[in-house]
Design a protein around this nucleic acid. Structure first.
Length: 267
DNA sequence: AAGTCGAGCAACCGCATGTGC
DNA sequence: TGCACATGCGGTTGCTCGACT
């Protein structure tokens, strides 16, 4: 009521993203990081709302995304977590590095639900064992049947810390969605604590990134490359030695656009 | 070959939540 | 304290494409 919509509807593009739009968004975020989604499309030269850009980045462009089908073990884990957490897809997704809530939700609705119904677990497919009907309620109710480990993580907001390790030789200040974290005497930070854009903005610290789940993109960037990148000598995606596994859009198509597209810092 | 149907999934919508003033 | 705004989240829609008739 009286509240402005999150985005201007007039004149903004909707529907599937084009390769050029993907390229612009990707380039912009890799160049500048993410500070305010609302201004991202404007500065990146996109006729999209910030919400749409955010979704596209999170669900598709993020370089640490794991692509490909879910394994049986992952499906089992999803079923287990769903029985405990209900339709809290983001919480479930937080247990699967490289997977998005949307992906898990879609997989649940299209595959697992069917599978469970086939096995005669109709109710389980539709509802969690400990059904939580609203997000408001879920914040107030502590699920008594929640397994101790998950309960613990819920309470302490502990996240799995086995994916990305970033080692520094100097105190490190990075931001996590505008929240600054100073890792004074800490040599190791984890992916959940690091905003990638800010990571590249750290010019004075020596950083090495080692990660299995970052094999896709960032692990292939040496510090010198990212420094010159930030200094304005933009590098093309070709130089990044991309190693995306099973992308829906081949990265080759992006590199062909490099000559015709402009980067924000060249505007 | 053309039409129909359904599965899969990307993207949108609206509401909730967090934050700053 | 209340308002405005940005972002996050979950439900839903609608497009695409392959299988089938």
């Amino acid at each position: 009521m009286g509240r402005k919509p999150c985005c201007e509807k007039i004149g903004l593009k909707r529907g599937p993203w084009t390769i050029e739009e993907d390229h612009r968004l990707m380039n912009f975020i890799l160049n500048n990081g993410i500070h305010c989604w609302r201004v991202v499309p404007k500065l990146a030269g996109l006729l999209r709302c910030g919400k749409s850009c955010r979704l596209r980045w999170i669900n598709y462009l993020r370089p640490d995304l794991k692509r490909g089908g879910f394994t049986d073990a992952e499906e089992d884990r999803i079923m287990e977590l769903h029985s405990q957490l209900g339709n809290r897809w983001s919480k479930i997704a937080s247990h699967f590095p490289g997977r998005t809530d949307n992906e898990i939700k879609n997989h649940w609705n299209t595959k697992i639900k069917k599978k469970m119904k086939h096995l005669g677990l109709n109710q389980a497919a539709d509802e969690p064992i400990n059904s939580i009907t609203s997000r408001t309620e879920s914040k107030q109710i502590t699920n008594p049947n929640m397994s101790s480990t998950i309960k613990e993580k819920e309470e302490t907001k502990e996240q799995p810390k086995d994916d990305v390790i970033i080692e520094t030789t100097k105190p490190l200040i990075v931001s996590n969605n505008d929240e600054e974290i100073q890792a004074e005497n800490c040599k190791t930070l984890y992916a959940e604590e690091v905003d990638i854009g800010s990571l590249f903005a750290m010019q004075d610290n020596e950083i090495s990134i080692s990660s299995s789940s970052f094999s896709s993109l960032y692990s292939n960037i040496s510090r010198s490359e990212s420094s010159s990148y930030l200094a304005g000598d933009s590098i093309s995606l070709e130089q990044w030695d991309l190693d995306m596994t099973d992308p829906l859009v081949p990265w080759d198509l992006f590199t062909n656009l490099d000559d015709t597209l402009f980067l924000y810092d060249k505007m």
